[in-house]
Design a protein around this nucleic acid. Structure first.
Lengths: 195, 195
DNA sequence: CGCCTAAATGTCATGTGTTTCAGGTTAGTA
DNA sequence: TACTAACCTGAAACACATGACATTTAGGCG
């Protein structure tokens, strides 16, 4: 969803729908009308500009426009650093979580667009994480790249559970980069599906 | 409702609307103005910070179940259910996380006042979790009860790292309840005496 | 204790933006 | 086609911002 309806903006600003329409009519908020009934639409970009202009805090659902945040979940520092180096040098903003607890916390806090996940971390089943993320609305849209040295059966299972891609260890930097860019390039997350 | 108007705050604080506006103008209370007439809005979060800063009691309608929410982090279903039963029947709102990832996610999402943490979960060091939580601002205030069957050395280390209390397995329901109530500072109330 | 001062809060009137309400239309879906 | 949820519109009721001014409060001082 690239645009917002009046109803959505009303909820986001905690204001009446009628008021939003008046803002648009008055020109305070840039929008356009669809044919048919004349329903209003506002581009997310214009809405954010509007919020910034009036010093209104930007709702977290919209703040996720930083399409370059990546969370690396791996207990092996060497691997994590390696991934981090590749991604950072290509313009991504990265953070590393060394255990499941940190992973969950940082995923929920920073809402990265993409997470790399070691399938076999001690005490943490990557499968469980996949399932859990997919059924948790706030983070269900996160792109997940599974990183594993396991065989194709395991990887297939990961894909079935909702992984967006898998990388077998060892992998080339180019493979990783191509994989990540491919996933976040076309990424557009729907905004209000959480309520 | 995510934000409060000046009128609402005026009622909550039992104060004149004019005064609330002046608080905001003066910067004592953080808020922002909507376009149009310039009506003020204050995020609940900021309002609560304001109340806390001035030692003003927080109205129950804002507290919600915030002060009764408890997260139980334990990979053993039997233990988790046992704890959950005791707490729920005493008016607490509980949720269970069976691994570190779930624990981190739910802690960041729900912001419970208290978390019970099994010190020895497979692949997850309770010590690491303690340190991490204490140095993560959003959740550093969470009360943490360590649950463990280990000896006093381990428990002392947990306390040193920021645990608010420790419970040695096996423990009595009363011990748990007393511990939780003591930390949360809310009188435990039977679920039957709701109004 | 009473007086005084300054800051904070309350009161009032007014104009304007916002919400509510009711009615009708459209988009989305089965 | 039928149905539901979301949307637009107008009018009336309502809430809010604002300035000016009255009142209260806390603290200092004789």
């Amino acid at each position: 969803m690239k645009t917002l309806s009046t109803g959505e903006i009303a909820k986001l600003c905690d204001v009446n729908l009628r008021t939003v329409i008046r803002w648009i009519e008055r020109g305070a908020l840039k929008g356009f009308k669809l044919p048919g009934r004349g329903n209003n639409r506002v581009r997310v970009e214009d809405f954010i500009a509007f919020l910034v202009e009036h010093d209104i805090p930007i709702p977290p659902e919209l703040a996720g426009d930083d399409n370059r945040r990546v969370l690396i979940v791996d207990d092996e520092p060497a691997i994590a650093r390696s991934i981090q180096r590749v991604l950072r040098s290509n313009g991504f903003v990265t953070d590393v979580a060394v255990d499941g607890f940190q992973g969950g916390t940082k995923l929920m806090k920073d809402r990265p667009v993409l997470m790399t996940l070691d399938l076999s971390m001690p005490g943490l089943s990557g499968y469980d994480v996949l399932s859990f993320v997919r059924e948790t609305p706030e983070i269900s849209g996160t792109k997940i790249i599974i990183i594993s040295a396991l065989g194709s059966d395991a990887l297939q299972k990961a894909m079935d559970l909702g992984a967006d891609a898998v990388l077998t260890k060892p992998f080339e930097n180019d493979q990783l980069l191509e994989c990540v860019s491919g996933l976040v390039g076309v990424q557009t997350r729907s905004i209000l599906e959480e309520e």
